[in-house]
Design a protein around this nucleic acid. Structure first.
Length: 284
DNA sequence: ATTAATCCCTGGAGGC
DNA sequence: TGCCTCCAGGGATTAA
């Protein structure tokens, strides 16, 4: 099973690679080949002009977002499904699906590639960079000290919608994508369609630990298996984490042997074990 | 205010 | 082989 989309663990690996390769580099000029990558797309000119002469002071991460800190402003970048960064000598031919090129003053380019063109970049003020744009209203990072059980329980109690789409909102906690949310719900033995406010405290406790565990293990794997920072940053699919349910339709559940089922939940493919993750009749 | 639906995109898979 | 249709999905936006 190849993991294609950059989840939080890969974004963190990309961030480290960017720091390693382009921190301290100065932008000479920017080329944009697909305006909709830039938010708002009507301000591509300003985007190019404002970045000219700026030095990359640091690269941060919040949830699945990257935040480039420059001298006078910041850039929020989301890779969405298939976005990736590469560093190449500026005379190297552009690969297909290259949409934004940051020409650096040292003869290299930082290039953004994205087959689906779903990724986005947005310039924001430096002072409020970590709360701007899509970073507004984000939930806590999926760590024991920031993702607190009491807050999780309180949040769940206020929502009646199914727990899976709630977790994908990035509001109760950040970092879960369609893959790891299925894995976390399986680990906690909770059906994706369970109304959030129907979870017991014991279930919330298990689910919180499962989320922290699944993403934490993936971060570790993502940090160890991407081989090089030489030029390809965050080339997707390099890390392998044992997936129990995602993409395992029909395969035996690792816990009980029941065939894994695939259903639709809020327009998303959803994998689960019908024996381990039971849904009471009243919620069907 | 909450929640569901729509949209953005392309490549790959499956049908014929 | 080639053409067609359908599907995948994060999050912003729009509708209900």
């Amino acid at each position: 099973m190849l993991i294609k989309m950059p989840e939080l663990p890969e974004v963190e690996t990309v961030r480290k690679g960017l720091v390693h390769l382009v921190k301290g580099s100065k932008i000479q000029a920017v080329d944009v080949y697909w305006d909709n990558i830039i938010t708002p797309a009507t301000e591509v000119m300003q985007f190019k002009e404002q970045l000219q002469g700026q030095t990359i002071q640091d690269v941060k991460r919040r949830g699945k977002y990257l935040i480039f800190l420059f001298d006078d402003l910041a850039m929020i970048s989301h890779l969405r499904m298939e976005g990736k960064y590469e560093v190449e000598e500026t005379n190297t031919p552009l690969k297909k699906h290259t949409h934004v090129v940051f020409h650096l003053t040292d003869g290299r380019d930082l290039r953004y590639l994205d087959v689906r063109k779903f990724g986005r970049m947005q310039l924001v003020p430096l002072a409020t960079a970590m709360e701007a744009g899509g970073l507004k209203n984000l939930g806590p990072e999926p760590l024991p000290d920031t993702f607190l059980l009491k807050d999780f329980i309180a949040y769940l109690a206020t929502r009646s919608r199914p727990v899976k789409p709630l977790l994908l909102e990035q509001k109760v906690v950040v970092g879960l994508g369609n893959i790891y949310v299925d894995e976390a719900l399986f680990e906690a033995k909770i059906h994706p369609l369970r109304p959030a406010d129907s979870l017991t405290k014991a279930e919330a406790k298990k689910l919180r630990l499962a989320i922290i565990d699944v993403l934490g293990r993936a971060v570790e794997a993502g940090g160890t298996t991407i081989r090089t920072y030489q030029n390809a940053l965050g080339e997707a699919g390099k890390f392998q984490v044992a997936l129990n349910v995602y993409g395992q339709t029909g395969a035996p559940c690792p816990r009980c042997g029941t065939p894994i089922e695939k259903i639709k939940v809020a327009q998303r493919g959803t994998h689960l074990c019908p024996h381990c993750q039971k849904l009471p009749m009243k919620y069907r």
